[in-house]
Structures are given as structure tokens and as C-alpha cells.
């Protein structure tokens, strides 16, 4: 045993093994601890099921949307008055974010440039900054705003939910890409003003990248808006 375990080289080699062991342990710890393959399989199953559900719901939404368009075109066939109503409806849809819109504007990309893979996510600690950003954009006359292609409408929520940020009830994580239609200069200066939202973001380790777009497409709100409690007041 002396020959094998008594040499300085052996100490060196065991030191290497020790370093490797600790590194591996730390990396696995950083990845969120030990996840057994069985648990991973369970999660995969869950994920697939949710994906399927999501697809089905999207299809259902499309079907409903089609039905609505059908009714509208049916009604508009031969009546001027109804044509007027349809154009009103279209306008209302435009204002409520239920149509794709295009125009000039800016895209703002918020991300976190981690120097090393440190697992830190500033958005999880300052999710309200996204709300602030939307507020600033609206104040600067933004006509349509979407975050990661989630159109922001009057009922949109931006809220921390576990390790994600829920926007329109869907989970999102960084990078967050804002597409904003409005006056490019006003929007840009509203964001980049000194001590403004961009500076606050940067102070919280969030990188802000803003680009002018001459032609920008902001997608429509993908969900179904239905009010259960609020009823319109009929004026005499």
C-alpha cells in the first residue's frame, strides 16, 4: 500500500479529484439541486399535457373569433346602418387591442447580461419595473404596446408568479421585448430621459436596448374578453 498511497503524485491526483467533486456538486446545486429522472419524467408529462391544453384553448379561441366574424359579415350584407355599426365595432376593436396594428414605433429589449451563469434574475425582484415601463410608454402616447407579443390591454396584468412573470395569464421570462407603436421621438425620450425608467432599470442590473422601427407589427390580444360582473348602464 505504501508504494501506491505514499507518493506526492498521489496527493496531487487526489487534490484534482477533490476539486472536480466540489465543482460538480456546486454546479448541480446551482442547477436547482438533484432532480431524479423520475421527477423529470413527471414534469415532462405535465408540460406536455399543459401544452396540449394550451393548443386546444387556442383553437377554441380561433373558432369563436371566426364565428364572430361570420355573424358580422352576415349582418353587414345589405344594410347601411349595420355597415356603420360594423365600422364602429372595428374601431372599438382597434382601441381595445383586438386587432393586429402596424405603424412606426420602437422596440425595447430588456434583459440581464449575466457575467457568469449566476442564476440571478433581476426581473424576479423588480417585476414592477415592467409595469412602470408600460406606464411611461402610455404617458408618452403609445397607441399599442405588446410585451413578448402579449398585447397590453385594459385588463392585462403584469405580475410575478413563482419564477415567471405572468402577462395576460401566460408565463414569460427574460428577455422582455416591448413593441410600441407611437411617435418614435417622444417614446425614445420618455424612456431615455435622465433619471427616467431606463436609468432605474440599469440601476437594477437590467440592460435596456431601444431601437426605432419604421414599420412595426403589434399583434392582437389573443384571449377572450368576457365580463362577468360589469354590465353597461343603458342611458335613456
Amino acid at each position: 500500500m505504501k508504494k501506491f498511497l505514499g507518493r506526492p503524485v498521489i496527493g496531487f491526483i487526489f487534490a484534482i479529484i477533490g476539486i472536480m467533486l466540489v465543482m460538480q456538486g456546486q454546479t448541480i446545486g446551482n442547477m436547482g439541486g438533484l432532480v431524479s429522472s423520475q421527477r423529470a419524467d413527471e414534469l415532462l408529462l405535465e408540460l406536455n399535457q399543459l401544452k396540449r391544453e394550451n393548443e386546444q384553448l387556442s383553437i377554441r379561441t380561433e373558432e369563436l373569433q371566426e364565428a364572430v366574424t361570420d355573424f358580422e359579415s352576415l349582418a353587414a350584407d345589405n344594410n347601411r346602418y349595420i355597415e356603420k355599426l360594423v365600422s364602429d365595432v372595428n374601431n372599438a376593436k382597434l382601441y381595445s387591442g383586438q386587432t393586429d396594428v402596424t405603424g412606426s414605433g420602437v422596440t425595447i429589449t430588456l434583459d440581464y447580461d449575466s457575467v457568469e451563469n449566476d442564476g440571478f434574475d433581476p426581473f424576479l425582484y423588480n417585476s414592477e419595473l415592467l409595469l412602470l415601463m408600460v406606464n411611461e410608454l402610455n404617458a408618452a402616447g403609445a397607441e399599442a404596446v405588446s410585451i413578448n407579443d402579449e398585447r397590453i390591454i385594459s385588463t392585462s396584468e403584469i405580475r410575478l408568479a413563482g419564477s415567471h412573470i405572468n402577462i395576460n395569464g401566460k408565463k414569460h421570462s427574460r428577455p422582455f421585448v416591448f413593441k410600441v407603436i407611437g411617435d418614435t421621438k417622444t417614446l425614445r425620450s420618455a424612456v431615455l430621459i435622465r433619471a427616467g425608467i431606463a436609468d432605474i432599470m440599469r440601476a437594477n442590473y437590467i440592460s435596456v436596448d431601444i431601437e426605432d422601427e419604421s414599420e412595426l407589427l403589434v399583434g392582437k390580444y389573443e384571449g377572450v374578453i368576457s365580463y362577468r360582473y360589469a354590465k353597461p348602464v343603458v342611458s335613456e
Partner: peptide
């Protein structure tokens, strides 16, 4: 020596 080496490695790690 082996145990010392391992301890040193863990410490360095």
C-alpha cells in the same frame, strides 16, 4: 497523503 490531497482539493474547489 491521499486524504490530505483530497481535503486540499475540496478546499480549493
Amino acid at each position: 497523503l491521499a486524504i490530505l490531497g483530497l481535503a486540499l482539493g475540496v478546499f480549493l474547489g
